[in-house]
Amino acid sequence: MTTLRPLFIPVILGTPRQGRMSEPVATFILEEIAKRDGIETTLIDIRTLSFPVTDAGEAIKDSQFSATMMRADALILVVPEYNHGYPGLLKHVLDTNLKEYIHKAVGICGVSAGGFGGTRVIENLLPVMRELGLVTIFWDGNFSNARTLFDTASKVLDPAYLKRTDKFLKELVWMAKVLRYGRENVPRE
């Protein structure tokens, strides 16, 4: 039965920069989703991937990354906002696949040093997600003032983030289940 297979929902840490404040956010999200029954997850740190920059798209596919995207039922992107935009390397990495994303859910966590929780980077990513064939959810993760959000052990200091993240993940899991059912059982006309 398809429902017995766990959902596979990787978390993509979307920046390679030194001192990145998205890293504790990604760790936090990974821990929160790993607590749920019926979910498998892994962290994909784009710093550890090595895609050439002299070409793009499917011409530079990495077989392991593609296999992970193919297996995924949904994705969580943890993305810092850089001058209102998304990191170029994240776009470069995501663009190496296309069909692998079709009819899969995606939730986005924006991270910012200021008070807007990466809302602008999330909005900028939405059309990209759509073209990749991913299905966006209507809950986001908004992590404002990132430098003061976590203690030295990467524990979130504001408990409100636990409740917000719970809502975000519940919606993502619901969408992942529905889309898996559709992919496996609902034929196109």
């Binding site: 499917e58 011409a59 296309l98 069909k99 079709i102 009819h103 064939g133 059982n185 034929p187 196109r188």
Partner: peptide, 15 residues
């Protein structure tokens, strides 16, 4: 397998 989508690949058109 269940055939559930078609995707138009513009980049592949160059290749």
């Amino acid at each position: 397998m269940n055939y559930h989508a078609e995707k138009l690949d513009y980049t592949a058109a160059c290749i």
